[in-house]
């Protein structure tokens, strides 16, 4: 295997991991605030459809990405009103959001099926981007990849270093005590849900604007669910989430190469590898963390203020 092939594999791993990183870092913030939004898949697909439509009509990838974010936020607003504002069951609201997203994205994108446009531009720095092995990997990605990395850094800094991040974790940990301390539980949660929606929308936009620059119904193909699993997998820590997404992206890409090389295992088994890897990693993690739950204490519990 020469250097070019290795570089190609590494670049595709990053590409496969990017939508997972963006969507799951948003969901991580939502869950750290104590809300379980199972509608990631629905918000992603809405972002993918609206993002592609706007980018196609305006000819601007940037406007398309903004529209994808707006679509995700709008979807999460619906969820927030139900699950945070009205303290409805979060699991049911999230599942409904996924179904709503899949349906309405199919409707909105119906007239764009089969349309094609240019993929999002990649960074090009003369000299640096031409370096062997790392050139394309480090200096030749599109803006989504850099945004994903920036999001992980920013979220990690926000959660661990700022007072607002501390308040958000406190709200997710024990909403009763947080309320007693005078922290705005519902406002914090609503903002977290909106951030999660923006991230999921952007992740969907990445799929239709950069990963495969066209729209097709159901193109998220379960990535929203994998993003949800990654949050648990990372035990709600942003940096582990980055590693998990790369691991999952790596498994996805490697199984494709393994299939191409026809190593004698059925293709279905190889396709299942990334999911098996996720399950295995979850088992190993949960065995390691026997003492002290790592999940936010109030995760999934509706908050109803007593006065």
């Amino acid at each position: 295997m020469n250097v070019q092939i290795i570089e190609l594999v590494l670049v595709t791993i990053v590409t496969a991991a990017t939508p997972l990183i963006i969507a799951s870092v948003g969901e991580l913030v939502v869950e750290r605030a104590g809300v379980l939004n199972l509608g990631v898949e629905g918000m992603m697909i809405a972002g993918a459809a609206i993002g592609f439509a706007v980018a196609f009509l305006t000819g601007s990838t940037f406007l398309g990405a903004l529209a994808a974010i707006a679509a995700g936020m709008f979807m999460s607003l619906l969820f927030g009103i139900l699950a945070v504002g009205l303290a409805a069951n979060q699991v049911a609201s999230g599942l409904a959001l996924t179904i709503l997203g899949l349906g309405s994205a199919g409707l909105a994108g119906a007239s764009f099926v089969g349309q094609k446009r240019e993929s999002a531009a990649s960074l090009y720095i003369p000299g640096l981007s031409d370096l062997p092995l790392v050139g394309k990997l480090v200096f030749g990605e599109d803006m989504f990849v850099y945004t994903a990395l920036a999001l992980v850094i920013a979220v990690s800094w926000f959660l661990n270093r700022t007072r607002a991040g501390l308040a958000l974790r406190a709200v997710g940990e024990n909403h009763g005590s947080a309320h007693a301390l005078g922290l705005p539980v519902r406002r914090t949660r609503m903002l977290a849900v909106l951030f999660g929606g923006a991230c999921a929308g952007l992740a969907g936009g990445y799929l239709s604007l950069a990963y495969t620059p066209f729209w097709s119904p159901g193109m998220t193909a379960g990535r929203g669910w994998i993003a949800l699993a990654l949050v648990v997998f990372s035990s709600w820590k942003p940096w582990r989430l980055l590693a998990g997404a790369l691991l999952f992206g790596g498994a996805t890409v490697l199984q494709l190469h393994a299939q191409a090389a026809s190593i004698g295992l059925p293709g279905q088994v190889l396709s299942a590898l990334p999911y098996l890897a996720t399950i295995l990693a979850l088992v190993v993690l949960s065995l390691r963390n026997r003492r002290g739950s790592i999940a936010p204490g109030s995760l999934g519990t509706p908050f109803i203020p007593d006065r």
């Binding site: 007072r163 501390l166 974790r169 940990e173 024990n174 947080a178 301390l181 922290l183």
Partner: peptide
């Protein structure tokens, strides 16, 4: 108290 937060974080809140 918040079990998963540190002593300092609990006080800071």
């Amino acid at each position: 108290l918040f079990d998963n937060l540190t002593v300092a974080e609990n006080v800071a809140l």
